[in-house]
């Protein structure tokens, strides 16, 4: 299982939004600072915090908090 607090903390650090503002449906559509550059920054931060290596496809599919959690759990399972 993914540590939900840790996940929100990383997103909050990288995107510069408070933890309270982050929920499962948070995505580039409703968080203004989540642009393409911060998306790359987020991918790098997730790789480093959760000690995983993500493929370009994984990285591109991580388009909401819910999807990030699913993909991370999937990668960690393997």
């Amino acid at each position: 299982m993914i540590d939900d607090m840790k996940l929100k903390e990383v997103i909050s650090n990288v995107l510069g939004v408070s933890i309270e503002e982050i929920n499962d449906d948070s995505s580039p559509d409703n968080i203004e600072k989540w642009d393409s550059l911060s998306h790359i920054n987020l991918v790098m931060a997730l790789e480093s915090e959760f000690k995983v290596e993500l493929s370009p496809e994984d990285a591109m599919d991580m388009l909401s908090v819910k999807l990030i959690r699913m993909i991370l759990e999937d990668v960690l399972k393997d």
Binding site: E9, N13, V14, G16, N41, M44, A45, S48, E49
Partner: peptide
């Protein structure tokens, strides 16, 4: 020492 630490500190 991680990207996440740096992002927070730089803000």
């Amino acid at each position: 020492n991680t990207p996440s630490d740096y992002a927070r500190a730089s803000r």
